[in-house]
Structures are given as C-alpha cells and as structure tokens.
Write a protein that binds this DNA or RNA. Sequence first.
DNA 1: ATCTAGTTTAAAATCATTCTAAAGAGCCTT
DNA 2: AAGGCTCTTTAGAATGATTTTAAACTAGAT
Lengths: 143, 143
Amino acid sequence: MTQKNRMTPKAHFAEKLRLAGLRPTRQRVAIAALLLDGRHRHVTADSLTEEITTAGLHVSGGTVYNTLNQFTEAGLLRRVMVHNDYSLFDTNTDHHHHFYEAENDQLVDIPHDDVILAQLPAAPDGHEIKAVDVVIHIQSKNS
Amino acid sequence: MTQKNRMTPKAHFAEKLRLAGLRPTRQRVAIAALLLDGRHRHVTADSLTEEITTAGLHVSGGTVYNTLNQFTEAGLLRRVMVHNDYSLFDTNTDHHHHFYEAENDQLVDIPHDDVILAQLPAAPDGHEIKAVDVVIHIQSKNS
DNA sequence: ATCTAGTTTAAAATCATTCTAAAGAGCCTT
DNA sequence: AAGGCTCTTTAGAATGATTTTAAACTAGAT
Ligand SMILES: [Mn+2]
Ligand SMILES: [Mn+2]
Ligand SMILES: [Zn+2]
Ligand SMILES: [Zn+2]
C-alpha cells in the first residue's frame, strides 16, 4: 500500500499539491480533497462551488476558477471541450474519450480501449502531437 | 456543369438559402456569398464582420451571430470546438478532423482519410451517433 | 399596393471568466 | 516564536463574447 495510508487525508492532498508545484493552501487542499480522490467525474466551476458549499466550506469565485486552471495546468485535471458555454473539467486525466449528448449537456466517458485510432496523420512540420481528443456526439434515437 | 452558372451569383446564393429553409435576406445572401463559395476555411463572428466591412457592407453584430447560428443549424456551416473563448465556424461541412495549435490559436484541417477510427464504441442505450469529432492538439517541437 | 410574418437593428442585458488592489497566509530565516 | 517575503485569497469591478429586446424594416404572398 502507498504512503498515503499513513497520513491524514489533509496531509495526503497537501503532499500531492506540493509534488505538483502548488503551495497547499487551505482552499486548494479542500478542493483537492473533493476532486482528486480518485473518482472519475466532470465538474464545472459552478458545480464545484456547490460541492464546496455542501461541504460547509467557502471559497471565493475567483479562487475556484484559479484553482481549476492551476490544477489543469499542473496536470491534476483535464479540460474537456464540448461547447462554448462554460468550461468542463475532468478528474480523469488518463487518456480517454467522451460521448456528448448536447440535448441535456451530458458528458460520459468512453473506456480507453473502445476507440481505436488506427492511423494518425503526421503533425505539421516542426510540430508534435500533444493530445488526441475524440468526442462522439450522440442523440436519443426518437430524434 | 451545374445550374449555378446560369444564375447571377446573388440568385445562386438566394436559392441555396431557400433550399436550406432560410429566407434570403440581403444580409444572409451577402454572408452566404462570403462563406459558402466553396472555399474551406474557419471563421469567427469577428473575422466575418471584418470581411463584411472589407466588402463595403454593414451587418449588425446581432445578425452576424444569428446568421452564423442559423447557417450552422441548417447544415451550411459546422461549429468546431477547440476552446471556450469564442465560437469557430467551418465552411467545410464534410466529415473531417482538425489539428489545433493552442499556442497561436490556429486550426488546420486534416484530410478525411488521414484519421481512421478502426473501432467505435456502441452509443449508449437509446442513443445514436450523430458525429465524431477528432481534435489533435499540437505544439511546436522546441516546446 | 397592401399585408403579415419573419428579420434586422442598436442598444441593453447576460453571464462565464478574468482582473484589481488590498488583506491574509504559507514558509523560510533568524 | 517572531519577522518578513512572496504567493494567495478575497470581494467586487471589469471584460468580452453572445443573447435579448423592442422597434423599424422587408421578403414574399395576396
Ligand atoms: Mn457567455
Ligand atoms: Mn469570455
Ligand atoms: Zn472523462
Ligand atoms: Zn475544418
């Protein structure tokens, strides 16, 4: 078992943040405890703020945005692009793709192996591929 | 050759709009003439407004947005999702994918055949696949 | 020419996100 | 344990793309 089982949860997430190059402030540790617990899900600044409130905490709006951006920059979260209305963050940073149902703005993970890219184009000269995002747009069958 | 060569360009685009179920107003025809001439490119509300101005015309901001949305809804344009900053519209509605270089917000088409999805997952129960979007994020090699 | 539903317009409103500048908190050094 | 430096947080203002509004206009039918 990993070392995390010897620490209090707070210390565990503080350590995780330090490793990511982020100073473990009270707010960041609280958000890390909510988002980086291993569960795979998709959150928005709004839904995260709700979670924080439900947990009996308070973090200013600016800090929620800053933290989501910093976690993403640090590779602790992943931003998913499916529309222009607001940002979606994925707690699953492993390589995987998504189903997106615009009808009710629902995003669902596709297991890694269920999409196979048999052939990829070469990146344009002087460039390299950083990530490949596949979004499969779906709709309910009865139109 | 198609029938379009027998009409004045204006009539040609008016007809195209009628077929798409859109009343061919002066503004829509002007925008159609700029965007639906067969060239494949990516535009924003802003870049389109510039083009309109350069052409010596004027269309209100609201109408530029409405028209882009209506054209997209009608299948004359395609919206491409690569970031949350503003909408990108593609004059190429054929099935194709994109390279995206975040560094300088540059979007480049990938020829249809250069990405092959060998295996697609089944859509969730009661749903069908409407579109598959692949975005390959790239960056210049010297980081 | 007249009518009517659909469209355009300038301006205001919306709203997610970023910025500001002042107060607070990690953390390193004494 | 205290001091100090830098990074963070905060509430609130600002930003900016997009939508909405309500009045003026027009395509197309009669
Ligand atoms: Mn918006
Ligand atoms: Mn914005
Ligand atoms: Zn996911
Ligand atoms: Zn394209």
